[in-house]
Design a protein around this nucleic acid. Structure first.
Length: 276
DNA sequence: ACTAATGTTAGTCT
DNA sequence: TAGACTAACATTAG
């Protein structure tokens, strides 16, 4: 379940492996992953001859800069990238294969098949879905705190749901929302309309601190996440509430509780998370 | 052997 | 229109 820190770690490890390589051919074993262009055959036709010049990240999206195009990739739950010699045995659940002219290939694997890829002409990637509605993530230098606060304050939804909304703030998923709200001392069921400016400032600060620490630790590995060099993350050791149900809160000793919020498992300390 | 839970986003319904 | 709900899918825990 890659969120911002995992996607950023994937970006950092993957760019060393593929930047400068030129695509020779593409194979697609699960066409639904290719969302744009509409025709998968066209996707396969456009790629050969394209060189990967850089990999960027926006929220949880990876953007592969090519000679003439940009490939926008979302890993959803279980998507993974790896680079292997062409002769290496194909792993299970490999759905898209980019073969390079140097005899290696970039393989996209995804047990759940939820991941997506969109190919755009260079410069057009922000004008259409999936990126057109995406908010800035809090690690971007042009993240506008006031815009975030305005959006939250006029929403009647609970803050847990608001923080998961990628059009309000990008990059947070279920794990980092719970950790952020714990650090900010805010109850996950607080409505956006009930949050003070101070609480919203704490939420932004907490999100930045949590995400930066997680990036420094190479992300969080709960079940299956590994970066593009097959390494797990280490931030799971730092989790204060996510997956800590019934364990004593590190601050007050009260047991961490787990509830359902709109169907999502939600962890919090009932004693420490009361400030609005 | 069945059922529920897992997490992210787009699309649909109200 | 904002918000709630569900589908897309596979695996695993109970």
């Amino acid at each position: 379940m890659p969120e911002l820190p995992e996607v950023e770690t994937i970006r950092q490890t993957l760019r060393q492996l593929v930047v400068g390589k030129t695509v020779e051919s593409v194979a697609v074993h699960w066409p639904k992953i290719i969302q744009a262009p509409d025709d998968v055959e066209q996707f396969k036709q456009l790629m050969p001859g394209q060189t990967i010049t850089e990999i960027r990240r926006k929220g949880k999206f990876l953007l592969f800069d090519l000679t003439d195009y940009v490939l926008v990739s979302h890993l959803r739950m279980e998507g993974k990238y790896g680079v292997y010699p062409k002769k290496d045995k194909m792993q299970d659940h490999t759905h898209v294969i980019f073969s390079f002219t140097d005899g290696t290939e970039l393989r996209y694997r995804d047990v759940r098949k939820f991941g997506t890829m969109h190919l755009f002409e260079k410069g057009k990637e922000l004008l259409d879905k999936p990126l057109v509605q995406l908010a800035k993530d809090p690690l971007e230098t042009d993240f506008v705190i006031d815009l975030f606060k305005e959006k939250v304050k006029k929403s009647t939804r609970v803050i847990k749901n608001i923080l998961l909304d990628q059009t309000v703030i990008a990059g947070l998923g279920n794990i980092y929302v719970d950790e952020t709200l714990y650090l900010a001392g805010v109850h996950p069921l607080t409505k956006g309309t009930d949050l003070s400016d101070k609480a919203l400032d704490r939420i932004v600060d907490a999100a930045i601190e949590t995400l930066e620490k997680a990036v420094a630790q190479g992300g969080t590995t709960i079940r299956s996440y590994v970066n593009s060099q097959g390494q797990i993350g280490m931030f799971q050791q730092e989790l204060k509430v996510y997956g800590q149900t019934e364990k004593p809160c590190q601050a007050c000793g009260r047991p961490i509780e787990k509830i359902k919020v709109s169907g999502r498992g939600t962890h919090y300390c009932p004693n420490c998370q009361t400030q609005a």
